[in-house]
């Protein structure tokens, strides 16, 4: 379980979020949704030091998140950032290898575990043919996949994605969802910031709604629909219907 307890979160000297308490359950997929500028990214970026927790605490499996040594932390929780500086001029395989950084010892020599994790990550993301191509020469969508592969190679029980669908075309989005669901079935806790409400409702066990830099709602996706809170926050109407075995949502 990842838990924010009465956290005040700053970016630089600007206080963005005040007294935030929210809980992400273990083994579940939790989506964070909310209008632009509501503080979703700021909330989660505190996990990778891009925003700072000034008051309160973050607990990971009951332990203070910031008490972990950086590499121990990186073995437990991986993060796909929405914003990235330029992609370095290294091959896709080289980028994926970086995902093993927290697992490697001081000599940074790869062992069999590292190699198999890298192989698996490249296979799962369908990047086998691109492995020797420089990541910076790939399209935005393919780069996104390469970073996902890097994150997979990190092999963490908690995976955080900040708008992972950026740059992805429709089939790639479907694949990404399939992959996230599969990871979750393998026992990985997923925390994901999404813009597409339809996708958020389909994929999530739990939903966290943020509005005006505060947590507006937390609960299961099903209950969330019943309360009509999404309609209220996003000022929209949701029609749900069943198609095949899946629920589909029409949002207008």
């Amino acid at each position: 379980m990842l838990e924010f307890k009465n956290a005040d979160i700053n970016i630089g000297r600007n206080e963005i979020l005040r007294d935030i308490s929210v809980c992400f359950e273990k083994g579940r997929i939790t989506s964070v949704i909310g209008p632009n500028g509501c503080g979703k990214t700021t909330l989660l970026q505190s996990l990778i030091g891009l925003s700072s927790v000034k008051k309160g605490s973050i607990l990971l499996d009951g332990e203070d998140y910031f008490s972990y040594k950086p590499r121990e932390r990186a073995k437990r929780l991986s993060f796909m950032s929405q914003f990235r500086e330029n992609t370095p001029n290294i091959t896709v395989a080289g980028l994926v290898e970086h995902g093993r950084f927290p697992h490697m010892g001081f000599a940074r020599k790869m062992n069999a575990d590292d190699r198999s994790a890298i192989e698996r990550a490249i296979r799962l993301t369908g990047l086998y043919d691109e492995r020797d191509i420089p990541a910076c020469e790939l399209s935005g969508g393919m780069q996104q996949r390469a970073y996902l592969a890097m994150q997979l190679a990190q092999e963490c029980p908690y995976m955080v994605f900040d708008e992972p669908m950026n740059h992805l075309d429709f089939p790639a989005q479907r694949e990404m969802y399939g992959l996230i669901k599969k990871l979750n079935r393998d026992g990985i806790t997923i925390i994901i910031v999404l813009h597409d409400l339809n996708h958020a409702l389909q994929i999530s066990d739990n939903i966290v709604i943020m509005k005006n830099r505060a947590i507006e709602y937390t609960g299961t996706a099903k209950e969330c629909l019943k309360t009509g809170i999404i309609e209220q926050v996003f000022n929209c109407r949701i029609h749900s219907f069943e198609s095949g075995n899946e629920m589909q949502y029409l949002i207008g």
Partner: peptide
Amino acid sequence: GDGTAHSLG
């Protein structure tokens, strides 16, 4: 970059 480097520990 800062964010990714941090997330890698």
